[in-house]
Design a protein around this nucleic acid. Structure first.
Lengths: 216, 216
DNA sequence: CAATAATAGTGGTCTGACCACCTCCTAATT
DNA sequence: AATTAGGAGGTGGTCAGACCACTATTATTG
């Protein structure tokens, strides 16, 4: 008959852990009490403590290192994207949405990057382009991916970057070749980044995407 | 020496559960195999299964009912928002990224919507605008949110819409008023949607966002 | 003094045992 | 015969204890 008798133990433990963090003034990087100590202090079974800790770990709020302990992480919540993405995208109809979203996110990142990238980024990209000359084709593809990634990161928004990573990773797991930028595109992108020509850059990516869609 | 020896069991279980969901075509509301059966099928201890399930529960992806079983939920991520919010609240960089990403996603959705929304959407929006006249201020805000949501959904990309939902939910839990569209903006958006004027629409949203940023 | 070996502490996992709760089927009652 | 009370079995919730693998610290040894 009791409607809300007692909260689940592991939920209660979450609150207690939070309290401990606050009371002890723990910050990112600090070590949490061990599982056995928590189990002791809170008068609950160790397995319940673990259920709570595992939840926090999946959320990316803590990090556990075997033999060492459990540590508080820089809480950014970007893990949200990772976990949700992998579970939300179950249905196959979402494939098209996935590709489209990925393209849009890339476009957004590049638009930000063109405004924010500094000389060091340009230098890195230039170096990568040069590197392509001295490698085999397979390795060139690898370098191209790297090039793309650096450009994306230059957007300066880590959450957007994580979105890109997840969308790309998930897409590739669907046995659908992920369209990395070919070498010529990399070179054009670099040139436009240097000129800070956002308009042409957007245009370029749109055409690239249209071309890919036409193939299918 | 092994860099990636073996993934933690409960992480492996997460993947397996995902696989089971896909293979068996399970959907929201459906029942998952029992903890004991999973433990059996996957050849792991029940406690490990529980660690995985508890994680998913905290994320709001599943729901467990004592004596009945474990069920798949519509993935809203509300729970996650709750937990993350109570643990974070101080990373300014993350907050900024979040706001920026949210704005970008909204912009993307609207740009798609202007190309894809049909007459029925327009009709719905028109109706909402009219509705604003006959209500109190508080309810008007509610209607504005609804208006915004419908516009976003009109992008036709469910993944993008989900992202919007997550980003918005997450943001509102950070004690930062989420900037829903004011009434005048809704009216302007509707007008531009009807005219299919993507350029001015983008412009409008950018200005709105700039104005909001200026306040702080 | 430095290198090495033993030790204690920590997370990772499994097993088995209860408990509380729900569903469903059966059997007794009306 | 229809209804109801009761029980059996399944399910999640929790705990205790036992190992294992790994790490860091300490003690030992050369």
């Amino acid at each position: 008959m009791s409607v809300q008798p007692t909260e689940k133990v592991y939920i209660e433990i979450l609150k207690q852990i939070k309290a401990i963090i606050v009371e002890d003034g723990l910050q990112a990087g600090d070590k949490l009490p061990s599982e056995r100590e928590l189990s002791d202090r809170l008068k609950v079974g160790r397995s319940s403590v673990r259920e709570a800790l595992r939840s926090l770990e999946l959320l990316g709020l803590i990090e556990t290192r075997r033999g060492e302990g459990t540590f508080i992480r820089e809480a950014t919540g970007h893990r949200l994207v990772e976990v949700l993405a992998s579970f939300i995208l179950n249905d196959n109809k979402a494939r098209h949405d996935l590709q489209e979203t990925r393209h849009i996110v890339i476009k957004d990142c590049v638009e930000l990057a063109v405004r924010r990238c500094g000389s060091s980024t340009i230098a890195k990209l230039t170096h990568l382009i040069k590197k392509m000359d001295t490698n085999e084709q397979e390795q060139v593809n690898e370098v191209c991916k790297q090039f793309e990634k650096i450009v994306i990161q230059a957007c300066g928004n880590h959450l957007l970057y994580r979105l890109y990573v997840e969308l790309t990773g998930y897409g590739s797991s669907l046995q659908r070749a992920n369209s990395y930028w070919p070498r010529t595109l990399c070179e054009e992108v670099l040139a436009l980044l240097e000129k800070k020509d956002a308009v042409k850059l957007t245009d370029l990516l749109s055409k690239q995407n249209d071309a890919l869609n036409a193939i299918e």
